[in-house]
Every structure is written in C-alpha cells, then in structure tokens.
Design a binder for these strands. Structure first.
Lengths: 345, 345
DNA sequence: CCAGGCTGTGGGAGCGCTCCCACATTCAGA
DNA sequence: TCTGAATGTGGGAGCGCTCCCACAGCCTGG
C-alpha cells in the first residue's frame, strides 16, 4: 500500500493521468463507464491525492488557520475557546478541510509566525479571534491580502468579514430582566473595554438600563475575563458607600463565578440580597451555586459559521464583506431570583 | 510584495537557485560573502519558501497533527485538553512547525479523516491522545507506518513512543496521604477503567491502600470523567450501608467537583466528615469549596515533550521506542483536612 | 609535479499534481 | 452533405522547491 500516484492509477484503469484527475475532482465530461472503472481502482488501492503536489499545482491547500493571539494561557481556562474550536472543526471536518491552530503564548511568537504562515502558502485563509482593538494581526492580514474572517466585531469593520454574537442586544435583555424584577440599584461588572465584545456588552447594558429609566450611578467596575478579576470587581462594588446595590450584571460567566464568591465572602446572599445575571451561558450550570442566569451566545455555531464563511471567501464566491450576527437569548436560572417559566437547566 | 521564488532571489543576489537554497536551509559550503549577500536579499524581499513546493520535493511538511478521538464535546469542558494543546503549540512554535488539529466529534469522522490525513502526506507525524484501550486509530497508524507519539500509556506499549504522567505513583501518594491523616474507611471514585490512565490511578490507589493495610471493602464506584458522573458516584458511595466512609479519592478534578456537591447535598461536610483527594491539579483552586487537595500532573509539559519527541521520531534520530513518564506530586489544600506545610494555593 | 582530495557553485531532473490545449469522435442543424 | 459545436480523452508544461551530480579552483602530500 505504498503511495501510488495519478499516473499509476491511470495505467491500472487503462486511462490517462488527466482522466483520473477529472474523476478525483468530480469534473464533468467523463463517461460513466470510465468513471466507474477509475473509481474502482481508486477504492481498491486506497489512493489519496498528494496534498503538497496538489497545492503546488493549484495554489490551494485545503487548510484553514485558526489564530488566537495573545494571552493564550488565561484564555484556555475559559470554556469559550474550546467550544469555538469545536464549532470550527466540525465545519472543517464536514467540508474535508484541515484546521491548523496558531496560538501565541508570547508576543514574540506573533511576529515570527504570522509572516511565515501568511507567505508560505500554508493555509488558504484564517479565522482570527479575540483580538483586542487595534490588533496588528488584522492589519497585517489585510496588507498581504490573505483571506480572513474575524470572530467578533472588528473595531474597523467595513472592509472585512465577521461573525459575532449579539452582545449588545443580549446585554440589553439582561438590563430589562433585572429591571423587570423590580431591582433598582443595579451595578455592572464590565468586560475589558479594549475589546469590542466588552464594549458592546457594556453599552448594551447601559442602554437597557436607560430604557428602563434606571441610573447606574457609580456602580460600574471592570474585569479582564478572569474569575479573579470578577471577584475583585464585585468586592469593589460592595465596598462602595451605601445604599448597597441589589443587582448586578456581570459581563462573563467566569467573572460571575468570581463575583459570586465575593458576594458569599461578604456574608450576603445571591439572589436574595443581590440578583445576578451574567453573559455567555457557557459554564456547566451546576458549577456555581446558585446556578447562573445568563445571556447565552451560540459559540460553536459562531465557529462553524466562520469556517463556512471563510470557505466562500477563499473560493471567491463571496466578495463583499458580510457581517453575521447570531442572536443571544436569556437563560433564566436561579441567580437572578426571577421566575423561570421553562423550569430550569 | 507578491511571491518571489528561489530563482528570483538568486538573480537578485547574483547567484544560482541552488546557492540560495543552501543559504535558506543552512547547509555548509557557502562562502561567507555569498551567504551575507543572499541573506540581505531575503530580508529585503521578505522571502518565505513555498511550503507546498518544499514538501513536494523533500517529502516533509513541517506540520504535526494532534489527534483527539471521540467524545470531543465532553472533553472540552475539561481544562486538560486546553492545557495539553497549549503545551504542544508552545513546542511546535519553538521549532518552527505547524500544528494541525484533528477532533472527531463523531465516529464517522474518524473513519473518513484518518485515511485522508495519513495518506495525503499532510503531516509528518501525529500525537494521539486520550485513546480508549483497543482504539483502532493506533493500529491504523502502525499499519501505515506514520510516525506517532501517544500521550498517555498505550495499552500495548512495546512498539511505540509515549509520554505520560505517573498516574500510578500519584494515586499511591494519595492513598498514603489519606491513611497518614488517620482515615480508615476510605473510598474510591475511579476514572473509567477502559482507559489506561483510569486503570493506573485505580490500581495505584489500591496498591497504596494495601501498603497502609487498609481494606477498601465495597467502597468503590466508577465515573466517566464528567462532573455529573462524579456526583452520581459519590451518591452511590454515600448510600451504602453503614459505616459511612470518612475519606475518598476521586480520580479527576472534574469528578471531584461533582463529588463535593453530592457531599454537600447529603448534608455532610468536606473535609470534616469526608476527606477528599483528587487527581489532575488542574482546576483553578478557588473554583471549589473547599479547595481541592489534588495530585498534580504537568499537562503542558507532557504536551511539549510529546511534540519534541515526535520530531526526533520523524527525523529518524530516535528509533527505539521511548516511554517518558513525568512525575506527579501531591498538592495539599483544604479538601483533605490535612496539614498544609506550604501554606496553600 | 601531478594525482586526488576538499570547497564552493551551477544546473538538470523530478516530486505529483492541475491547467490548458490538441485532438478524435459524435451529433445536430442548415 | 458538410460545418461547427459539444463531448470525451490524452499529454505537455509548469508550480517552486530539493537532491544529486558536474565542474572549476585550490590545497595537500608522495
């Protein structure tokens, strides 16, 4: 079962290299009998086209890159990236493509790897995630005209493709929900404001509060996605002068887990003293007490869609920038102290 | 900055294609002046060798595969895989290689993807993880003579390379520790026994108990790595006829989180009523109350080592199977109720 | 003084494909 | 009947490298 090539398959089937190639690639204009004969030989020999030869000749590799810049260490404690990868691989598997993963645990990696990847023809295109605003990776990709899709909302989004969840709308929902439960002294633990996702959740929430005629006053703190930062932020909010807040929106599940600890450590109860709604809907529900009411975003679907969109960009069937936004929805559990029409989980 | 090739670089530097190739690949027998001249042109043009052309000619791709078969969905809730990927990418980044990720969320993927990957010359070799005993993937890799390294202890390990953590030794430590704290009615929540890691942890623990002259009796249950299975297993142990156990070893951090919930739900306290030691040392400590005493394994190091080992296998500098085992160590926190010499965290 | 080795360089061949054009055959329409 | 398209097939060229051999020039030792 040593490697065979097109020529050899052709010899065995009594046709030429070209005809075998046409069969392999599903080109038209091959007679049914010949096609069947060639396919039989292919199955019999277990023939697989040589990836390098194919991509040298055709200038396509069938490999997509997934780029996760900066702070990889911290990121992997968040189930978000696992889910995203799962979504992307599910799409690439389905379309017979291969996923190459590029993580930068150090700034230096970024500068050495990006040029290598981009100029060596290793990948047909890349999916870029989790970029901070003004991230140089995106500018670099634009400059060299490598096809790419951004996961998230790019800060300068006119000239590129992106797939995002409706952070703004979801955060508004959270505000309305807390207001609807009668809470009035509502606080916010915002995700980092140097990311568009962070900004959108923050602004959407403030917008929602405004619509409910609630003034947030000074009850704003900011975290950096980590559990510890959520705890610290909650502590800050709790130490503010009275009256104490009676509800809080936390910009991510992981930060919410930290915030819950701070609430408990302060001798308070969630949801009785402080109602909490978070964002992501991604933590296994039973991992926290009480279980989190959270705005759920469809992370795996985002990844899947990004991969499929990238393919259309790569093969040129779509050329005008598309911005796909997935809806988010409020999943009500215990931490908000509100009603749960559906019965939970 | 359109693609330039070797020939063109050569023309610009006044030398031949071959000489440029020698410079790029660091071959000897290039005069210093010529080398400097060529390097200048390369820097100036930002030249990068074309990956496909190179691998077509040399039969090497510089791409390593990481294969994670079966049950990907569940797996990504466990920080284990994130850490492993981090370790692997850190090594591949350092050696200028690229990582291709192969996840099988469905059995069917496995059968369609493995042959494609293996026969298309897409990767130089693969790292295979988390295989159940008797997994066909490994046999397939052996049959086609694709270089590979197993993460974990292969059930039939004589003829292959592997990198593992000392599951058995770590579990023995756990047994000795609980025994040393004076606990006598000790139970076990074992990881699945169709994995070598599960078997090793189970056997190591039983071995440690035997060395401490403790009989485990009927106090054994088995989980499947998930938090929920840990909860269910603990429930089973607690519902057994008296006398109730006073300590338990849980085969993974995630299962331990579930077990803690079962203990709490039964109105019992950890560590006062039941001391608990788990395995992995991978969960952020503050994620559980009380914080877990756990046998820590160096997951990222395992991944890093596996990648480096794979490279030596691929380039033929190592040919006799090597089995690398990383030591594990007991990290004492609160859940065992024992002394913590180092003061925590 | 010359055979035989090293050193540095150039260029041919070929890796296994895809792309394109050439060509044979068939078939429709004028 | 003949022209011209549609259909099916073969083969040349070339993608950008690496590998290997050829060869010029120089140095060494008998």
């Amino acid at each position: 079962m040593g490697r065979v090539n097109l020529e050899e398959i052709g010899r065995m089937a009594g046709v030429s290299r070209s005809t075998v190639s046409r069969v392999v690639n599903g080109s038209p204009n091959v007679s049914p009998e010949v096609k069947a004969r060639v396919e039989a030989v292919i199955t019999e020999t277990g023939y697989q086209p040589h990836a390098a030869a194919r991509s040298l000749a055709s200038n396509r590799t069938g490999v997509f890159g997934l780029v996760i810049p900066s702070a990889a260490e911290a990121l992997f404690d968040d189930p978000y990236f696992g889910r995203l990868i799962l979504g992307v691989t599910s799409a690439t598997n389905a379309m017979g493509a291969t996923l190459a993963l590029f993580l930068f645990d150090q700034e230096s990696d970024e500068h050495s790897i990006i040029p290598r990847v981009v100029n060596s023809g290793l990948v047909d295109g890349v999916i870029v995630t989790a970029t901070q605003m003004g991230d140089p990776v995106i500018r670099h990709l634009q400059r060299v005209e490598m096809p790419f899709v951004v996961v998230g909302r790019p800060d300068d989004g006119r000239a590129m493709f992106s797939v995002d969840a409706d952070n703004r709308g979801g955060a508004r929902l959270a505000a309305h929900h807390l207001a609807g439960l009668g809470r009035r002294r509502i606080g916010l633990i915002s995700p980092p404001s140097n990311t568009t996702a962070g900004l959108d959740r923050r602004n959407g929430f403030l917008e929602g509060l405004a619509e409910s005629d609630i003034d947030i006053g000074e009850r704003i703190a900011e975290g950096n996605w980590t559990e510890e930062s959520g705890r610290a932020a909650m502590e800050t909010l709790l130490s503010a002068p009275t009256p104490r807040l009676d509800a809080v929106f936390v910009g991510s599940d992981r930060m919410a887990a930290g915030a819950l600890r701070a609430i408990r450590d302060a001798g308070l109860s969630c949801p009785a003293d402080i109602a909490l709604v978070s964002f992501d809907g991604i933590l296994p529900p039973d991992q926290t007490v009480p279980r989190l009411t959270s705005v759920a975003q469809p992370v795996a679907e985002v990844g899947e869609r990004a991969a499929r969109l990238l393919r259309t960009v790569v093969d040129g069937s779509v050329t005008t920038p598309e911005h796909i936004v997935f809806p988010t929805r409020l999943v009500i559990r215990e931490s908000c102290g509100g009603s749960n029409p559906a019965g939970g989980s």
